[in-house]
Write a protein that binds this DNA or RNA. Sequence first.
DNA 1: CTTGACATTGACCGACCGGTCAACTAGATT
DNA 2: AATCTAGTTGACCGGTCGGTCAATGTCAAG
Lengths: 201, 201
Amino acid sequence: MDSRTDTRQRLIDSARDLIYARSYSDVGVQEICNRAGVRKGSFYHFFPSKRDLTLSVLDQLQAFFRHDILGRAFATDIPPLQRISRFFEYAGDFQQQMQQLTGQMPGCPFGNLASEMSTQDEGIRLKVKQIMRDAEVPFEQALAEAVANGDLPEIDTAATARALFAYVEGIMVYAKAHNDPDMVRELGKRALQLVVPERLA
Amino acid sequence: MDSRTDTRQRLIDSARDLIYARSYSDVGVQEICNRAGVRKGSFYHFFPSKRDLTLSVLDQLQAFFRHDILGRAFATDIPPLQRISRFFEYAGDFQQQMQQLTGQMPGCPFGNLASEMSTQDEGIRLKVKQIMRDAEVPFEQALAEAVANGDLPEIDTAATARALFAYVEGIMVYAKAHNDPDMVRELGKRALQLVVPERLA
DNA sequence: CTTGACATTGACCGACCGGTCAACTAGATT
DNA sequence: AATCTAGTTGACCGGTCGGTCAATGTCAAG
């Protein structure tokens, strides 16, 4: 049981690192196995296909994102709107760490897979879509709390949270193309402007 | 000379269609040649590599984007801020047309390649980065015109234009993951909120 | 009519693709 | 000791990868 979970987990970790650093199509099953120290035959004992492994990778990435990024950013030790700003700081920190480790800015693993795979694999698209929807929740909760506090007028918190997370994804693509993690923080400073409803013609 | 440009152009068109619909790594040189009706040997007469062909594809996509999307959206027949709103309408229209043709929402070809290739090919990354920088220009010009008109207070037009185009990219990723072109228009309605500088703590 | 440049062809390269499979090992259960 | 099961192994499948190359075809300028 121990070696079972261990081999399986090493395959997930290996695939996560390789696919996040490059892309789904560019990484082969053999290479994933090499990095995990697993023979290819064993791979197919644990996963029916490369695609299914990728779905497991997404599950674990979502768990990490939820607990270590969203959870920390949206902790209730500061006022709700400041939590949104803190999320962009943490996202920038994370990208900066990745760049120091690898020399590259990998961007958002979910956005990357959405861009590459949405037209090719409906299962992956739906999983990424659900991850994005779940990511909206803490944004919406923070907005609702700000409305309750009187920090914000009555707004459509769901639609606003969605716009905020779409902006997150765009910042990641933009910063990745520029290979510049500082852009995450710089562009993130404007995020709160998306919060207040239409004021311009 | 005629057949030269013709074969070369057919290869560019074929690669554009295939890579935009799927991804760089998933499309092979042989498949590009098949669709173009060209033998593989001829391919390497016109392009030193698949990568170089992709750079040519990007050049032509940029020309199309500049003239047929940005040019029309930012025409001066309406006030400057309305041109920004019109851009999102046109972007949504284009994605909807693509979805009707193919059943899929391909998103932004530049953002797609940025996500997939930025960590893998510096030449492609730099070209996409430059395309994005160029795309900011009409946004910035419209903002400057709005400031001059008194429709807008004095703002950092360059930084605001950048935030707007990052938002564009995010909308495309988000709508692609949802396979829903309507999201482009819905989320686009919030774009102008990014325009006015900080008003919230 | 010849020359030379461009264009085209198809065979070929080694490597790799995702995936399959029968045989084998090891450890727990009876 | 015999049985069962999960795990492991390495050979193997047909097909494709990006790219090379020498031979051939085409056509216009001299």
